[in-house]
């Protein structure tokens, strides 16, 4: 088990598109474990993508049940080669990202999502997600394409500095 440092911008890996990952790759289970362990170390973190912890793999973890605003969810998800099959019910919501610790942004995301992927054991998955879980998945899938939440801002009023009490 390892908790890895989370890369923050401008690390170049964050802007890179991750290659398709072989679901049978023997290194995969360790990568997913790193993602789970690292996410667990950050309170309030509900998702992490492989490039954020320096792994050049197309996989991610999401667990919105860690948040009080979770809504309906699948608990801990570890997905390999996730792809969005259907997206609907678009809504603007505020997001943060561990790779930009001091910024928040309003981003438009689908509230209803169907995602195809492989699980940690190489089985195909077809997931229907809603609300916060759908939003978290879109944010993490974007990371696998080198797309960061700032790239999705649509108005100058949609970027905020995070106010820290400490």
């Amino acid at each position: 088990m390892s908790v890895l440092p989370v890369l923050s911008y401008p690390h170049p890996l964050l802007k890179e598109k991750m290659p398709e990952t072989d679901p049978a790759d023997p290194r995969l289970s360790a990568v997913l474990e790193d993602l789970r362990d690292t996410m667990a170390r950050h309170p309030g973190c509900v998702g992490l993508a492989a490039p954020q912890v320096s792994h050049r793999f197309r996989c991610l973890v999401v667990d919105v049940s860690r948040s009080p605003r979770a809504g309906e969810n699948h608990g801990l998800l570890a997905l390999v080669n996730p792809r969005i099959l259907e997206a609907s019910q678009w809504k603007v919501g505020r997001e943060g990202c561990l790779s930009f610790p001091d910024l928040l942004a309003n981003v438009k995301r689908a509230q209803k999502l169907r995602v195809g992927a492989w699980d940690a054991t190489g089985r195909p998955l077809d997931l229907a997600c809603t609300g916060f879980e759908a939003v978290a998945l879109q944010h993490e899938i974007d990371h696998l394409d080198g797309v960061l939440f700032l790239d999705r801002i649509r108005s100058s009023k949609d970027l905020f500095e995070r106010k820290r009490s400490s």
Binding site: L7, S8, Y9, P10, H11, F100, P101, D102, L103, L150, I153, S155, S156, K157, D158, L159, E161
Partner: peptide
């Protein structure tokens, strides 16, 4: 028609972000 800038802490150096309409 509108321009906002933010300077925040980056990993090594301050991060500059600019949103322009």
């Amino acid at each position: 028609t509108d321009l906002r800038t933010h300077v925040t802490q980056g990993s090594q150096a301050p991060l500059y972000s600019l949103v322009v309409e």
